[in-house]
Design a binder for these strands. Structure first.
Length: 122
DNA sequence: ACATTGACTTGTT
DNA sequence: CAACAAGCCAATG
């Protein structure tokens, strides 16, 4: 997200190995699709380090489409789990702008908007 | 180096 | 549905 200048390359280079992996996964989430923190962690090869994925979003900030990463609510349903209400509402706003619809309870249907990153061998 | 924290997840009571 | 617990891992003090 946000121009890919050399500046960004340096930024990415400075990330810890895990953050770098998370970065690589998140930047590949297409517009209008979402993934949960747990899915991102798994796709990044970090096992169940879901919290780390969330923690990383803070560090990566606007350099990645952070709004496309949500928390898991139930089976097949994702939800905004950001504690800060300002950033949380911002996330929802950005997603709705991309066409993602939220249920009355604030849930996002993963069957419809979920992004399944392809593993090796496409 | 040790303890605590955090935009998490899943299962059990 | 609410409360707990265990698991995972980098950042911070």
């Amino acid at each position: 997200m946000r121009r890919g200048r050399k500046n960004d390359d340096d930024f990415v280079r400075a990330l810890s190995q895990s953050y770098r992996k998370i970065f690589d996964v998140v930047v590949r989430i297409p517009r209008g699709r979402v993934m949960t923190y747990g899915q991102v962690a798994r796709a990044a090869g970090l096992g169940g380090a879901a919290r780390l994925a969330g923690y990383a979003m803070r560090a990566l900030g606007e350099r990645v489409p952070w709004q496309r990463v949500l928390g898991a609510k139930k089976k097949g349903i994702a939800q905004v789990t950001i504690r800060d209400p300002l950033i949380g509402s911002e996330q929802r706003r950005l997603l709705e702008r991309e066409g993602v619809r939220f249920s009355l309870a604030g849930g996002v249907d993963l069957a419809r908007y979920g992004h399944a990153p392809r593993r090796k061998t496409g």
